[in-house]
């Protein structure tokens, strides 16, 4: 479980994360929803120790250290690999560092995403780079997957593929925390929606509960929160 307690971050006088407390549980897909500048990406980076913050962040009860990264991987909105590398070199790179690297999943996902190992990253479109990005994240074998805007700025086919992937066996037992603007597409995929506004969590719902008890869609709720 990833647990955040009173996490705060300031840029000068402005608070971009304000006293955030919440948990991410195994086997759940949690989506951070918010307008631009709500603090979604900063929150993911704070969990990954990619930006300094105050408060307490633990993963399985322990503070984030280099060892934690064997269990927690970050999939940012841009593939974080040098563009002169080929897909095969990226796979070898990840295989070297991640003890639980899943070679079988990597090979299957190459086919699923229609990627060729020998292709160089610099020749790939944004959509295909995101496919590689997700492949590396999922095949790393980490149980916590943090993804920043995996559905933004990419073609409809790639979006469909990613949505399909998020409901597949590959992510079955993983805890996924991701940010997005594409509410309509993820409604049927996610378990939980966390709404952020001005660096704070303003509401936190299980989508099924929302549908059954309040008879509202995620979009309805979003309008309620932000308008």
């Amino acid at each position: 479980m990833i647990e955040l307690k009173n996490v705060t971050k300031r840029y000068g006088r402005k608070r971009v994360m304000n006293d955030i407390s919440f948990t991410v549980d195994a086997g759940e897909i949690t989506c951070l929803i918010g307008l631009n500048g709500a603090g979604k990406t900063t929150l993911l980076k704070a969990i990954m120790n990619l930006t300094p913050s105050q408060g307490r962040i633990t993963v399985d009860g322990k503070k984030v250290t280099s060892k934690t990264y064997q269990d927690m991987v970050f999939v940012p909105d841009v593939l974080p690999m040098p563009r002169n590398m080929s897909i095969q070199e990226c796979l070898d790179f990840m295989n070297h560092f991640y003890k639980k690297w899943d070679e079988k999943a990597a090979n299957e996902l190459l086919q699923f995403f229609q990627l060729k190992k020998e292709e160089r990253l610099r020749g790939l479109s944004k959509g295909y780079l995101m496919r590689v990005n997700l492949l590396l994240g999922i095949a790393s074998g980490c149980k916590y997957l943090l993804m920043d805007e995996p559905l933004s700025g990419i073609d409809i086919l790639t979006r469909e593929r990613i949505s399909e992937l998020l409901t597949s066996e590959y992510v079955d037992k993983k805890a996924i925390l991701f940010t997005t603007h594409e509410i309509a597409e993820i409604e049927t995929i996610i378990d939980r929606a966390v709404f952020m506004k001005d660096g704070m969590i303003v509401s936190d719902y299980y989508v099924e509960t929302l549908r059954e008890q309040e008879q509202k869609s995620l979009l309805d709720k979003m309008r309620e929160v932000y308008v």
């Binding site: 990954m48 990264y69 940012p76 974080p80 690999m81 560092f97 990253l121």
Partner: peptide, 13 residues
């Protein structure tokens, strides 16, 4: 750079 490779480097185990 285009790849923000530092994000990968800093989150390696």
């Amino acid at each position: 750079g285009k790849g923000t490779y530092m994000q990968r480097l800093l989150t390696l185990p």
